[in-house]
Amino acid sequence: MNFFRLVADLMHLASIFILLLKIQKTRSCAGISFKTQLLYAIVFVTRYLDLFTTWISLYNTIMKIFFIASSVYILYLMKYKFRATYDPILDTFRIEFLLAGSLVLALIFNYDFVPMEILWSFSIFLESVAILPQLFMLSRTGEAETITTHYIFALGGYRALYLCNWLWRYIFDGHVDVYAWVAGIVQTALYSDFFYIYYTKVLHGKKFELP
């Protein structure tokens, strides 16, 4: 564990709490893409299958269980409790392509051609593009509640800090994980426009609006 990874994980954790806070405080999931949330639930379930096979640490286990449980809980909130506040008309990104593309990539790029490894690769590739329906929704509405932008920022920042973590681990441990690196770079790059507007608008006390 190094500083970057710890802060990254805490940001990831924070992003989920911010999202839950947004939904509970405003009693609405307006502005949140159900499709992105669905993709994250798939990402966590397919990646953390090793909960049943490998013990890493208490920290690792608790975080994995939390990520799976919270993602399913958010789906429940959006699909049932606050269903009336969700606008499917704005959430029209075609996730079939993301799922199919990630699966094809996982079948080609994996550390071993066995179901667990293929699903792990699939989750890495799917995570890198899972934010797209949310960003697409943002571009359709052209604006967002400030708390929603904090959520997206924390979620994007987590993977950006993982890039620092991977550089650290490569230098000090010789740790190499090419698939995660490439996917992490793509994931962070997808946020770059968002980061720019977040920095120039939200952090200067203005509303998040697309130019």
């Binding site: 994980d9 090793d50 994995k64 990520f67 071993d112 792990w120 995660a180």
Partner: peptide, 10 residues
């Protein structure tokens, strides 16, 4: 040949 690949991250 399989690469050594430990998955200890989240």
């Amino acid at each position: 040949k399989k690469k050594e690949h430990k998955k200890d991250e989240l």
